[in-house]
């Protein structure tokens, strides 16, 4: 049990379309262990993104609870924000980099939230960009980078505060197959070397192939 870094207990999330309830996730139990690469797969609308959002504390369940490192994740928005900052990294389908910041500054941003001194921040951001293979692009703004380069910046940003869990929602959806392969290999390698849990929501077979464990969702339930 000590290996479980993140768990969802009876997670349920219902959205309302007007007066009609739509059950996105229904009573899901899930455990994520340290260092494992877990892939959530399923067709569109199966609840992958909703489950990732709940596990990443981006959304609150209607029922059930999320447990991070053995403790229920609850409290006001500031407490949850601090928890996301300290323990989670996020990788988005559309990269979601801040366009007015350079690649290095995007990576630095999560560190500024921890009031890390400037020189230390800059040194670590450069090292992370080197690690993801785009150290030479540190001073370039995102709009001048390719899709693969942007996702590498996003990966470096996700690693900035040395999280225990990285959540990725369709991280390869906007990449070509060669870049997808490179990005996935990078994510797996980083996960392994840092003993960091990696949870990926996808319906990309290339991602599923590289999973340590696969959980299939169907109509909001683990199928």
């Amino acid at each position: 049990m000590d290996d479980v870094i993140l768990a969802g207990r009876q997670l349920t999330r219902v959205y309302w379309l007007g007066a009609t309830p739509v059950v996105a996730v229904a009573g899901v139990d899930l455990e994520v262990r340290r260092g494992e690469v877990l892939v959530l797969q399923g067709p569109s609308g199966s609840g992958k993104t909703t489950l990732i959002n709940l596990l990443g504390l981006l959304d609150r369940p209607d029922e059930g609870e999320v447990i991070v490192d053995g403790k229920p994740a609850s409290g006001d928005e500031n407490i949850l924000a601090d928890m996301r900052r300290d323990r989670f990294g996020f990788i988005f389908q559309t990269f979601n980099l801040v366009p007015v910041l350079t690649a290095a500054e995007n990576v630095e941003y999560p560190m500024t939230l921890k009031d890390m001194p400037g020189p230390e921040r800059r040194r670590r951001a450069r090292a992370l960009l080197d690690r993801v293979g785009i150290g030479d692009k540190a001073d370039v703004r995102p709009d001048l980078l390719s899709g693969g380069q942007r996702q590498r910046v996003a990966i470096a940003r996700a690693l900035a505060n040395e999280p225990e869990i990285v959540l990725a929602d369709e991280p390869t959806a906007n990449l070509d197959s060669a870049t997808t392969r490179d990005v996935l290999d990078l994510m797996r390698a980083v996960s392994a070397e840092r003993q960091m849990a990696l949870v990926v929501a996808t319906h990309d077979p290339a991602v599923v192939e590289r999973a340590g464990r696969v959980v299939t969702l169907r109509d909001g339930r683990v199928g």
Binding site: N78, R85, F90, Y109, P110, N161
Partner: peptide, 16 residues
């Protein structure tokens, strides 16, 4: 708006 969502996902407090 989406950028604000991203910053908050990264752990930015609403006050910031």
């Amino acid at each position: 708006t989406r950028e604000v969502g991203t910053l908050r996902a990264l752990g930015t407090r609403p006050g910031r």
